[in-house]
Amino acid sequence: MTPLSRRQIAWRAAQDLPDGAYVNLGIGLPTLVSDYIPEGREVVFHSENGVLGLGPAPAPGEEDPDLINAGRGLVTIVPGGAIVHHNDAFLIIRGGHLDYSLLGAFQVSAAGDLANWATDDPTFPPGLGGAMDLAVGAKEVRVLIEHTTKDGRPRLVARCTYPLTAARCVKRIYTNLAVLDVTEAGFVVREMVAGLDAPALQRLTDAPLAFAPDCGVLKAPPLGERARG
């Protein structure tokens, strides 16, 4: 069994974004998604700091210190892009104008509850950023996440133990082991990596799993750690 790399998780999530979609990428794993949009599709990426039409990282010498993404990384703006002020950047988010919000998470529950802003460590200052706005405002919220923590504890749970970002907001989850939908009946596995069986995936998940009748194999091409073009 070979789990997907972080870049492969991002690649898999990118394949599901349709032509013409307006998408916000949360900090961390989701920011990798923009590197893997299939040829021929135009997807417009929105950044909470007021950029519509976020492009890839600049080539050496092309950096613009005034052009950053939500994670403060230097970016470019594509032809057709636009700059808006913060209130309009969040009007876009909160007013339901985004087709997808792709977010990272600490935990997701079988009801679609999302926890991604605070842990149980009192010395670690919490940080919201735009997560609560995105979780409530976008038409559809999808999460990219490692299936378990570094020490092997499930991140997909019956009930979140960390403070919630929003309740019942997540519709689809991409992990290094599986693609799952959140339904009224809980988690439904749509794809899982080859060499993993249902009982093994269930052992790594702290909530009951159902398996789609057409459950497929989760696979992604080999990807270098550097972004394409």
Partner: peptide, 27 residues
């Protein structure tokens, strides 16, 4: 929440005393 922060400041500038939002409900 960032959008609530921005909107609270906008409201301050616009003469709006307070507003309701779905963001953060239940948290």
């Amino acid at each position: 929440p960032q959008g609530t922060l921005s909107e609270r400041i906008r409201a301050g500038g616009a003469g709006i005393t307070a507003f309701y939002t779905r963001v953060s409900a239940g948290t």
